[in-house]
Design a protein around this nucleic acid. Structure first.
Length: 292
DNA sequence: CATATGTCCTGAGAGC
DNA sequence: TGCTCTCAGGACATAT
């Protein structure tokens, strides 16, 4: 789950670690395969213990914890990873524990049920070669013309392209569906066939949906996995208009029924009435919610 | 059995 | 032909 809004919620939730010093790094007794970390725990601990945390940032779906020596702990929650200050959902899937001192909080925990998440300690040069080189502009920072410049010539379907982290960083499967619904754009439409107004609407709803989701502290889906840094669920799942709502009436037109299709092996949800192929139909008003 | 939010890699095919 | 783009599929691991 963690897409940009969930990772941003985690980032904000762990801000109390700012200024703390890392006292110890331990892998709790957990019989599962150890978390993928670079370097391995021994060396990782040696390079981080005693260092002060000077910045807590985010790049796309990654949490970036910068230390005083400019090295950065990069946490990638992937499917089920959580970053918490205390009280994880269960102790059996706790993967890494940071003990902290001289700050407002005593621990930083990484919990991950599936264990696909990663934790890396990167030098500024490694940040440049791995993060900067691989990730596009953050979805909250990208301008409309940059978005079109990045994707406008692609022959890919727009829903597929929005998931490409090297184009725009932070949008995942759930929010791509919500964004295209509000923009009134068919998720199957090729990028190079989208019109100027459609690009404007997509850009507008990228920031609108993501900001809105952050305000609700992200989406906790039916499996209940996602939690904020205090192990509380998010609230944006109650605002979903199309995601995981196959067969339900469209919340905008009430005529269409939400459909589920598969694009590049992942589910896409949309309203076949509100979201039709470009150019052939009248455009949808950019912000239907403000109409009343 | 199929389903699930993310990412990384390889290999194959399409199209300019 | 060569280059670039794109996608399928597998891998990671676990639960419903």
């Amino acid at each position: 789950m963690p897409e940009l809004p969930e990772v941003e919620t985690m980032r904000r939730g762990i801000l109390p670690i700012l200024g703390s010093r890392i006292e110890n790094v331990v892998q709790p007794p957990c019989k599962l395969r150890p978390i993928l970390m670079e370097p391995k725990i021994r060396s990782f601990a040696k390079k981080t213990i005693g260092r002060q945390i000077v910045r807590v940032g985010r790049r796309g779906k990654r949490v970036m914890i910068e230390l005083e020596d400019a090295n950065t702990i990069v946490i990638e929650p992937r499917m089920t990873g959580l970053v918490l200050l205390a009280d994880p959902p269960g102790w059996d899937h706790l993967r890494l524990q940071f003990d902290l001192q001289d700050g407002e909080t005593e621990q930083l925990l990484f919990w991950d049920r599936r264990g696909l998440g990663t934790i890396r300690l990167l030098t500024p040069a490694q940040i440049r070669s791995t993060i900067d080189a691989r990730l596009g502009i953050d979805a909250l920072d990208i301008e409309a013309d940059q978005l079109r410049e990045k994707l406008g010539r692609s022959r890919r379907e727009i829903k597929v392209a929005l998931l490409d982290q090297s184009a725009v960083a932070g949008i995942g499967n759930l929010y791509a569906a919500e964004i295209l619904f509000l923009a009134g754009v068919d998720p199957r439409c090729r990028c190079d066939r989208l019109t100027g107004p459609q690009w404007i609407r997509i850009h507008h709803h990228i920031s609108e949906v993501l900001q809105d989701a952050i305000a609700h502290e992200g989406s906790t889906l039916s499996d209940g996995t996602y939690r904020n840094a205090l192990n509380d669920p998010g609230g944006y799942q109650n605002c979903h208009r199309v995601y995981d709502r196959e067969g339900k009436p469209c919340p905008r037109c009430h005529d269409g029924v939400i459909r589920r299709i598969v694009q590049t092996q992942r589910s896409t949800f949309f309203c076949p009435v509100c979201q039709r192929k470009s150019g052939l139909h009248a455009s949808i008003p950019p912000n239907p919610r403000s109409q009343r």
